[in-house]
Design a protein around this nucleic acid. Structure first.
Length: 572
RNA sequence: GCCGAUGUAGCUUAAUGGCAAAGCAGUGGUUUCGUAAACCACCGACGGCAGUUCGAUUCUGCCCAUCGGCUCCA
């Protein structure tokens, strides 16, 4: 039996149990989902988490009754009669494209459903599912509709699979960047500061600095030019750019300064356009690459905030590529290629790529959108990349390519975005002089490779479970003197490492060696160097590698050499 | 924002309508140690504002923050 069918059938059994336990319930929908199922209900009284075990117990009893699933094809009129008093079902019947309705009967529970289903609950083990949580969910997923109560369940083919899944969830929890951020002292959130506003602690700031430094070198090599722009800008600027109209729900209230209104910037684009427009541009200059680690502020609903991966103030590794119309596909191709290359440096190898098309609210002509979407498609095809379409997922000013990076557990994270923008050249009357001396309108590609430093670092932490590659580790090496007599030597070794730009700390607190080693392992320090009499004599260090234990003694110079190779090659 | 839950020391947790308990961390001391937690002592907390009550960390309301979802996204 296909697991999807079992999951879907379990959602009916869930509804059956709820029908029995909570009379007067109204049923919405109950599909199979990844790893399980859910069912949405409208209940007279809200459920509490204590209700779940009760419902689960009843489901188990029902499963053992060998309830048969019987399919019936009936007329819509008949269906309306059966489901009177069930407004959600009636709405679904009304929307049915087919002339008839299929219903499934399982014991005392009738449901409007296309199926397919199991023949009998005999086929379903009663210990391979588990109700996991209660949640609110809007009818048909729209905020404008009523909020229903959703019950989620997990379901697998066997108890063993269920347990394995639960085990994986525990593993994922250990990788939670919010917990790691606290344990490794990387960043903090504070209620006094406000929701969604991270503060970087010294070690987190070091990671960020390393990444910024890498980007600076890498992009400078690729002819990017670095910019800085202010965090607020006159409201008139944002009206002109279109953000005030099209991006309002993400903007913070205007700030009044001397009878003028200013907005906290939600994007860096208008500033970069101003840089472009600061002088007359020739076709010879194009393409131009302007880049900035630009901190932007966007209103996010309080309920969506999540650690570093969804915040209200964040720094994008932003860039605008300004080019002639015939350079556009070539530039997009180059960009995607370079972007993937950079992500690989950080250890990401798997990606989900999406092409997001025209949304409901947009600027520009349909013809422009069509052309832009085609050039994005062309670039993806040329690079032989598999992608999916994200219908109407584009930004108001143009279609985009989103690259979701997949972490070690296979979870996708939205980071890279490459967005076409034909709004700004128009609104800000950008131009360049072509070969014939004629004024032309350039194209703009807006892109963020890592997305935001906040989210990217959050993803890195989850990907590596906190054990960052050597070159990204905020503290790379600990030096542990065994006794007081070895402190001076430890100091000498540390000094030598520091001179070679390695990030090292001496741990000479009054604690046992074992305790300090335990501490170092928990802090995910890549190398712990133990020094005692033996090491002093041979000018060496006892090397302990993270997760591997003692790997023997090494000459100090050899150790430094290895570290430098790792740093330079940006390898683990 | 909406549905549901949670909020006790720097962290993890306990108990209670009537003096809030512990482990780790921190501080002071003892110990100077060879690869994942030495020993002793001390310091330290009821998210905020109202209300009910003789008395509220505990009950109620509002606010703030966090967690799981919905929706949304870099």
């Amino acid at each position: 039996m296909e697991i999807k069918v079992i999951r879907h059938s379990l959602s009916h059994i869930l509804a059956y149990a709820v029908q029995e336990l909570y009379p007067g319930v109204k049923f919405a929908i109950g599909p199979a989902i990844e790893n399980g199922f859910y069912y949405d209900f409208e209940l007279k009284k809200p459920l509490t988490p204590q209700d779940l075990p009760k419902i689960e117990k009843r489901m188990k009893e029902l499963l053992k009754q060998n309830i048969e699933f019987k399919k019936k094809l009936i007329s819509k009129a008949e269906a309306k009669k059966i489901f009177k008093g069930q407004p959600y079902k009636l709405e679904l019947i009304k929307e049915l494209k087919a002339g008839k309705a299929t219903i499934y009967e399982s014991g005392g529970f009738l449901d409007l459903c296309a199926g397919p289903h199991i023949k009998s609950t005999k086929e379903v083990p009663s210990d391979a599912f588990k109700l996991t949580r209660l949640a609110g969910a809007y009818w048909k997923g729209s905020e404008k509709n009523k909020m229903l109560t959703r019950i989620y369940g997990l379901a697998f083919n066997s108890k063993k699979e269920l347990e394995e899944y639960l085990q994986r969830e525990i593993e994922a929890e250990k990788r939670d960047h919010r917990i790691l951020g606290q344990k490794l002292e990387l960043f903090l959130f504070d209620a006094d500061v406000g929701a969604g506003l991270p503060i970087w602690l010294p070690k987190g700031a070091t990671i960020r600095h390393i990444i910024e430094d890498y980007l600076y070198r890498e992009l400078s090599q690729q002819n990017y030019q670095w910019l800085y722009s202010p965090h607020i800008g006159n409201l008139e600027l944002w009206k002109k750019s279109g953000h005030w109209n099209f991006y309002k729900e993400n903007l913070y209230s205007p700030i009044k300064i001397d009878e003028q209104y200013y907005l906290l910037k939600p994007m860096n684009c208008p500033f970069h356009v101003k840089v472009y427009n600061s002088k007359i541009r020739s076709y010879r200059e194009l393409p131009l690459y302007f880049t900035e680690l630009g901190t932007v502020y966007r209103y996010e609903k309080s309920g969506v905030l999540h650690g570093l991966t969804r915040v209200r103030g964040f720094t994008q590794d932003d860039a605008h590529i300004i080019c002639t119309p015939d350079q556009i596909t070539q530039e997009i191709t180059k960009l995607i290629k370079h972007g993937l290359q950079i992500l690989k440096v950080f250890g990401f190898e798997n990606f989900d790529i999406y092409l997001a098309t025209r949304p409901e609210k947009y600027t520009g002509s349909l013809n422009d959108w069509q052309k832009a979407e085609n050039s994005l498609k062309y670039a993806l095809k040329e690079l032989n990349l598999k992608y999916s379409i994200d219908p109407a997922g584009g930004v108001f000013y143009g279609p985009k390519i989103d690259i979701k990076i997949k972490d070690a557990l296979g979870r996708p994270w939205q980071c890279t975005t490459i967005q076409f923008d034909f709004n700004l050249p128009e609104r800000f009357q950008m131009s360049y002089i072509d070969q014939k001396g004629v004024k032309k309108k350039p194209h703009i590609i807006h892109r963020a490779l890592l997305g935001s430093l906040e989210r990217f670092i959050g993803v890195l932490l989850e990907h590596y479970a906190g054990a960052l590659p050597f070159w990204l580790s905020p503290v790379q090496i600990w030096v542990l003197p065994i006794g007081k007599n070895h402190e001076a030597y430890a100091e000498t070794v540390a000094q030598e490492l520091k001179e070679k730009q390695l990030r090292v700390e001496i741990k000479d607190e009054n604690e046992t060696l074992s305790k300090k080693i335990r501490e170092g392992e928990m802090q995910k320090i890549p190398y712990i160097l133990v020094v005692g009499d033996k090491e002093i004599e041979s000018k060496s260090v006892g090397v302990r590698e993270r997760g591997k234990g003692n790997i023997g003694t090494m000459k100090v110079d050899d150790f430094i050499n290895d570290c430098q190779i790792k740093n330079k090659g940006r390898i683990n």
